[in-house]
Simulated scan of single mutants.
Amino acid sequence: MKKLYISCLFLFVLILGACGNNESAKKDTATEKEKETFTYQSETGPIEVPKDPQRVIALTNGPNALALDANIVGIDEWTNTNPLFEEKLKGVEVVSEDNLEKIIELEPDLIIAGSYMKNIDKLNEIAPTVVYTWGKLDYLTQQTEIGKLLNKETEAKEWVKDFQERAKSAGEAIQAKIGEDATVSVIESGDKEFYVFGNNYARGTEVLYQAMNLKMPDKVQELALESGIYTFSSEMLPEFAGDYVILSKNPEVDNSFMETELWKNIPAVKNNQVYEINTKASTYSDPITLDYLLEFFEESFLSN
């Protein structure tokens, strides 16, 4: 009986040891997987980045990375204040390229930065740092590039294809309702001035003009298409207002212009063809923002 007990005990110890070794092997495999890298062809040249980054700091292009469910531990201030990303950024630290100590504390394994930023060399010493130049890539190619960087190119391309199809369909439906010659302008309120946008300056411009193929007024095309943005005074509001106006309304500035006769007498205002978007929620051209604005534009134009 005693021999049987010892044999069973010995067998039990062997089983426990095997399980422990198995778990240890799994952990080692997972750790090795996290350490695997590949060569990403960045705009500054090839760079070794992790295949499965676990601690990403996005000093720029954070929304693009968020749309692909990146494991973000640090984000820029502007992205953090955007209400569309509030849920996804809970517990994420706000950082800048100037705060190197904080970046080091967050122990990133990948950093995304803007080419205009300072300290790129120092950031590279902390973790592989990939830089992008704003506006160098169109908004869809930019998402695909972030997908390549995060080893999620397939997901990024699938979204691009789906978005293009949905936006094209919505644009055709809107044109059928408002007419192919109807014009749309995107105007933003500032502290003492106003801005009108071309076809690639966020605020839904990529959706309206590129994906939906809606028309902008001639004056907007003349002054804002090439530069992307044109600044003007309130007296010129009627000159830049199209048949329809997308008003990027900043809740933190004086919007009393909306009570003036000048504004109220603009045809788009009189015809109830002004659709307000929140400036804070529309200053990016990432999938989360674009999907949100596409749905908003569909409801606004087609239900009116």
Score class of each variant (00 low, 15 high):
M1D: 13
L4D: 10
S7M: 12
F10R: 01
L11I: 13
V13H: 14
G17K: 15
A18W: 13
C19W: 14
G20Q: 10
N22W: 12
K26T: 11
D28V: 09
T29D: 15
T29Q: 14
T31D: 10
T31A: 07
T37G: 04
F38K: 09
S42T: 03
S42M: 00
T44D: 13
G45L: 05
E48A: 03
V49F: 02
P50K: 07
P53S: 01
Q54V: 13
A58Q: 08
L59V: 07
L59T: 12
N61Q: 10
A67Y: 00
N71A: 15
I72H: 00
T79V: 07
T79P: 05
T79W: 00
N80C: 10
F85H: 01
E86M: 15
L89Q: 03
G91C: 01
G91Q: 01
E93L: 00
E97S: 10
E105Q: 06
E105M: 01
L106N: 01
D109Q: 14
L110M: 06
I111V: 04
Y116E: 13
I120L: 12
L123N: 05
N124W: 05
E125V: 07
T129R: 00
V131I: 12
T133I: 03
T133W: 04
L140R: 06
Q143I: 02
T144K: 03
G147F: 05
L150V: 02
N151C: 15
K152S: 05
T154H: 08
E155G: 06
W159Q: 01
E165M: 13
R166I: 12
K168S: 14
A170V: 13
A170M: 14
A173R: 15
I174P: 06
K177W: 04
I178F: 08
G179W: 00
E180T: 15
T183C: 03
T183K: 04
G190Y: 00
D191N: 04
K192E: 12
F194H: 02
G198L: 08
N200Y: 05
A202M: 01
R203V: 08
E206L: 01
M212A: 07
N213F: 02
K215I: 10
K215H: 06
P217E: 02
D218H: 06
D218W: 07
K219D: 10
V220A: 00
V220K: 08
L223G: 09
Y230T: 05
S233P: 06
S234W: 05
E235K: 14
E235L: 05
F240V: 01
A241D: 07
D243Q: 07
Y244Q: 08
Y244F: 09
K249P: 07
N250E: 13
P251L: 04
M258G: 10
T260H: 07
N265K: 08
A268L: 06
V269N: 11
K270N: 10
Y275W: 08
E276H: 01
N278E: 14
T279V: 09
K280M: 09
A281E: 04
S282V: 01
S282N: 03
Y284I: 00
S285Q: 06
L293P: 04
E298L: 15
S300C: 12
S300E: 13
L302C: 14
N304A: 07
